[in-house]
């Protein structure tokens, strides 16, 4: 566990701008498209035991390359924030063991970075439902603050995110994107060092643009 707050939003902004610049330069090839979405996080699995509230702050970035008419490979970047303030008891599996009762603030910032593959139904320039799988992991910034006590645990967690969604064309090279990604991570610890398998739904709504 370490007490370091990393400004990942800076990293995310660089990634976003880089992707958009590539988008412009590759526009003529008509093989790429990108998506920027607002992301809502719904805790699930072990994460729900830590934070029950829905996280209303988040971003998703997708960049996909069409390898076939109905198949793309690409990259997925995200930022999902979950936060909850509750009063209760936290058991500490530390040495010595113990427990802390008080008002606690739990925060998780998840930054998934994954490779993706998607299969699209229907025809290009039409409403296109799709299914996909993202695989990689996430940088997890996890914090538990109970009054004066503070635990930070920032770590990389491996995981996958199955996805279903739909792309809705609006203009020739522009459309809307709605999808749901079930982010689930195979290994990791929570803020105080207990083993957890973090999981959450990322419900994303945003724009898709294509050449």
């Amino acid at each position: 566990m370490k007490i370091t707050q990393i400004k990942f939003w800076q990293l995310l902004s660089v990634l976003a701008l880089t992707i958009l610049l590539f988008s412009s330069s590759y526009a003529q090839r008509e093989q790429w498209y990108g998506a920027l979405t607002y992301s809502v996080s719904v805790p699930a699995g072990d994460t729900k035991d830590i934070i029950e509230d829905i996280g209303w702050w988040g971003l998703g970035l997708d960049y996909r390359y069409m390898v076939q008419k109905n198949l793309s490979v690409g990259l997925y970047f995200g930022w999902n924030t979950m936060y909850e303030k509750v009063t209760g008891l936290t058991e500490l599996n530390t040495d010595p063991p113990g427990a802390i009762y008080g008002t606690q603030e739990n925060t998780i910032n998840s930054f998934p970075i994954m490779a993706s593959i998607h299969y699209y139904f229907g025809e290009r320039k039409q409403l296109r439902p799709y299914i996909g799988l993202n695989a990689g992991g996430s940088v997890m910034l996890q914090r538990k603050a109970i009054g004066i006590y503070l635990w930070d645990n920032d770590q990389w967690q491996w995981g996958v995110a199955p996805e279903v969604g739909v792309a809705i064309p609006v203009e020739r090279d522009f459309g809307l994107l709605i999808n749901g990604k079930y982010n689930m991570y195979f290994s990791g610890e929570d803020a105080i060092g207990n083993d957890v398998n973090n999981a959450y739904w990322a419900i994303n709504v945003g724009f898709v643009w294509e050449p």
Partner: peptide
Amino acid sequence: IAAAIFILQSCYPGDELTYSDTDIVATFY
């Protein structure tokens, strides 16, 4: 994107703690 990042830049939103929020009972054995 620039606007969204500006809005979302806080990693740890948090609330101001009230006096009673600092009541903490820690036990070890």
